[in-house]
Structures are given as C-alpha cells and as structure tokens.
Nucleic acid binder design. Structure first.
Lengths: 117, 117
DNA sequence: ACGCTAGTACGGTAACCATCGTAGTACGGC
DNA sequence: GCCGTACTACGATGGTTACCGTACTAGCGT
C-alpha cells in the first residue's frame, strides 16, 4: 500500500538470531541444498518459480520457509514474484567459510556421483 | 571370540557411502554437535560415558548411532567400553574443511552466547 | 560365581517434518 | 473488472525423530 516495490512483510531472523543448528538443518535436506546451490551458482535474486524441483508448489513454499526461518535466505516480494537471496554476508559474519565449504562439499559429492554413474 | 581387543561388529558406512546430507543432519542436533565438539577438543578416542549429556543413557546411544551411521564417528568396542573417534580423515577426504568449519562456527556461536549472557 | 559398569535393544510416545491437495490471496496485464 | 500467474494457508497423512523407561548383554574385577 505505502511503498512501491514491496508490500507484505516476511519474517526473518535477525543476524544474531541465526542459529548454527537451524542453518545445518536447513542445509541437510536434498531439496533445500539444491536450492541453495542454484542460488549460489546464479548469484542473483531468483524467484521461487525459477527452480525446477521434484516437489509440488506447496512443498516448495515449505522448503523456502525453512530456509528463510533458518536465516539462510532472505525473501522479498516483488510484485507477484518473491525474490530469494542468499544471506551470504550474515552467514559469513556469523560462521566464516561455512556456506562456501558446504557448497564445495555438495559440488564434490555431485561430481563423485556423476563419476560413478 | 576370535580377536582380542574387540568382539562385536558395528555397522559403519564406508567412505564412499557417506552422504553430505546425513553428515549435516547429524551435526544439526545440539546434543550431537556438542558430542562432536568434545571429541574434536580432546583429540582422543572417548568412551560414551565420558560425555555428560542432558539426556538419558538410551538417548545417548541413539545419538551416537546417528553419528556413526552418518559417517561422522567410528565406534569400536574395547572391553566393556565403546570408544568413539571422529572420522576426520574420511570427512576431510570427502568434504575438505567441512568439519573444521562447522566446529569453528560452533565455537563462534558459543562465544557469542557467553558474551551475551 | 557374583556383582559392577558400560552400553544395547525394545517398545512406547509425542513432536516434528516432508509431502500432498485444495482453496485462497496478491499483483500485473488486458 | 476480469483473468492469469505466483505464491500462501490450511488441513491431512505418513514417516522420522528425540526422548524415555525397562529389561537385557558383554566384559572386568574380585
């Protein structure tokens, strides 16, 4: 109503509310890990519909909420779309190197799987 | 029966069976994260009873099993005790830097909590 | 053999979680 | 205003998890 680019508010933990256990839990699911990997690769704010996930839309919403409430991503409404951004700065400040290391680990695992398959 | 130092076999995933998601899930629980931190700090094979955890013995067994089946620790019987060791070499080979980064993140979080409290 | 210590196995419970379908809201375009 | 697209909210369901207590096994010491 008042502002232009966004309208509804989304609950996000503040930086100091982010808990390591919640971040690890958010990253421990294959669907969510894939989302985070895609976001890190594209390095841009992506809408939820960008991702081609093997689950329905309502389940997708659920996974994005877990990521948001865990402090891994930041979501903002932009018209009818919802843009998702990794909270790289917050995570780096809290847990230096964690996100990069997990992403590298995920890459390594996928590489190994491809080699085996 | 046959060998001397150990007797019963425990199921462990082989190195190539270790999955990142399982490792992250194992580390995402506060009790298990604390166990892993203690093991990394002491840098020795510790018996289960070394740890002073806020749960009962049967729950402790459960958590150690999750860590073992996730590939985070290796357990061996040694007489009446069961020795626990971090699988640092396997984890490092699969996911370089992951364990150290998570442990550093856990330390950082505890430090922040102590400063706030 | 007996008891002590360390840990397991089993069974149960309550909470959580990933998943879905359906119905609904918000926004942009026509 | 109407429709389509993007996403949400709600309710249900089945599977997993964290936790417990009790009963049990394995090894050590005496």
């Amino acid at each position: 109503m008042t502002t232009a680019t966004s309208s509804r508010a989304l609950e996000h933990p503040t930086r100091d509310q982010i808990r390591l256990e919640a971040v690890l839990h958010a990253l421990a699911d294959p669907v969510r890990l894939r989302i985070v990997r895609d976001m890190a690769r594209e390095r841009a704010e992506l809408s939820c519909s960008y991702f081609d996930l093997p689950v329905t839309k309502s389940t997708t919403t659920h996974h994005f909420r877990v990521l948001r409430e865990g402090g891994v991503i930041r979501q903002t409404y932009r018209g009818t779309a919802k843009l998702n951004a990794l909270r790289e700065d917050d995570l780096e400040a809290l847990f230096p190197g964690l996100l990069a290391t997990v992403l590298a680990a995920a890459d390594a695992q996928v590489t190994r799987e491809d080699a085996t398959a």
